[in-house]
Amino acid sequence: MISHSSKEYVALAQLHSEVPRERFEEVVREFIGRIYQRPPLRSSVKRVLRVKEIYEIEVLEYEDVYALMRISCQHGTYVRKLIHDIGEVLGVGAHMRELRRIRSGPFREERSVRMQELSEAVYMYRELNRSDRLKSLVLPQEYIVSHLPKVLVFDGAAAAISYGADLAIPGISAISEGIRRRDLTAIFTLKGELVALAEALMSTEEVLSSSRGIAFKTVRVILERDTYPRTWRKKSTTN
């Protein structure tokens, strides 16, 4: 789930000779949108040409041959390669000096926990029997889907979906506005538990005006089976 959501980085690029800032920014703008990218030699995926989307590039600082940029892009984009390619278009060459990921899907750097903090919290829990610190560092799994539109379902629907069923109209209690067909949506119980990820087959308006039909196709079930009791009848096993 997280590995398939958008990412944001701060990267330091070094140009192989000086270029005016205006020229640099002009070339950078050409890289916003859908780009072709072949993964670098040292990479963790097959080296075939892939289309990746760059949502934003902001030049934060520019001095001598160094450019500090904030880059927001689709998952699987190689920033090292992006910088190399910017250097090629500039004609002077460039390489990446440093990289830091500042956001992965809904999780941002400024809210991240240092290893030291985690180990202190574990110590307080184990040695002093105080769990509040550790509890505050471990987020409920529901946070993974913070960025998705959401739909709330009745207990019976939650039970059926946990067994793999799709979500039909009568199971829906509430829905966030603005869902379009094909949108990835998170299904929640009326207690706020994440049930599943699903693809919308109907828009918010269609859901509100329909009285029957499948509205969401289940993609991935999260809720453990039998958290809620089954309401559908089991096929008879006698004879």
Binding site: V113, M115, K135, V138, L139, Y143
Partner: peptide, 10 residues
């Protein structure tokens, strides 16, 4: 929480 939870670790 430890069974199904997230730590946004730096």
């Amino acid at each position: 929480l430890l069974k199904y939870g997230i730590v946004n670790l730096d």
